[in-house]
């Protein structure tokens, strides 16, 4: 099983969100970057588990500048065999997908595993774009993946429950909660990650969209505190003031 995992970096969830240059650019100074949680906890770990049970290899691919290298080393420490970085600082999903599909074409991968979405742009676009560019089947929001020969059994979130889907390989999917349990890299993993191959390739692709401006939501009005002994008053307010029930 030859597996490619798409790994992006994302600002740590506790980061302060601010913008510069008239709201055009995310203020990254002082921000700690992490592996995008869906990529790390779910896509990467499931890829490594499949390799452990079926044999094969796990390669990670990241579209980004050298600033992504620490995050890529973390993915190697968790257990990927090697990594590729496509050296473009992306601004849009179409651009990322073209570069990933361009890299993956004709490399003989059986599976391309992505996270459900990046937690900064919240796109959930790249994975299906890669699938279309490769002309492979695709499953979004997968919570389980088993592989039997050339058929994958996948579960996905769907309106009101989960659906079981059978899909032929090669396959692209985006991974959501349930797919795997988070793995903490051990000392041996961290040491060996330093010497695993991280290939850097240049590339070029055009974005199809552009963020004109980021804005922060208006500050939330003060919370109205209702005394516990008058809990019933809350229900009246929800009906008459907030009009939500």
């Amino acid at each position: 099983m030859k597996i490619l995992v798409c790994v992006s970096q994302a600002p740590d969830t506790t980061s302060r969100i601010a913008f510069t240059e008239g709201g055009k650019v995310f203020e990254s100074s002082g921000v700690q970057y992490i592996v995008n949680p869906y990529d790390e906890w779910y896509a990467l770990v499931r890829g490594i588990e499949l390799k452990e049970s079926l044999g094969g290899s796990v390669t990670t691919v990241t579209v980004g500048s050298a600033a992504c290298d620490p995050v890529i080393r973390k993915a190697l420490a968790i257990g990927a065999d090697d990594a590729v970085r496509l050296d473009v600082d992306p601004t849009d999903a179409m651009q990322v997908a073209s570069l990933i599909a361009g890299y993956a074409t004709d490399k003989g991968f059986d599976l391309i595993l992505c996270g459900k979405e990046t937690i900064d742009h919240n796109g959930s676009i790249v994975p299906a774009m890669v699938a279309e560019m490769m002309d492979w089947p695709f499953i979004a929001l997968a919570s389980k993946l088993e592989v039997n020969g050339r058929v994958a059994s996948v579960q996905r979130e769907s309106a009101g429950g989960t659906e079981s889907v059978e899909v032929s390989l090669p396959l692209v999917l985006s991974a959501a909660k349930g797919m795997a349990e988070q793995r903490i890299p051990n000392m041996r993993g961290i040491m060996s990650a330093r010497s695993k191959p991280l290939l850097v390739e240049s590339g070029q692709a055009e974005p199809a969209t552009e963020v004109q401006e980021f804005t922060l939501p208006p500050p939330k009005g003060a919370c109205k505190i209702i005394p516990a002994e008058q809990a019933e008053e809350l229900i009246r307010l929800l009906r008459e003031e907030a009009k939500v029930i």
Binding site: I119, H121, V211, F214, T215, L216
Partner: peptide
């Protein structure tokens, strides 16, 4: 964007 902590005009 940013899980609801900001908005983007695209």
């Amino acid at each position: 964007v940013f899980s609801g902590k900001a908005m983007a005009d695209v």
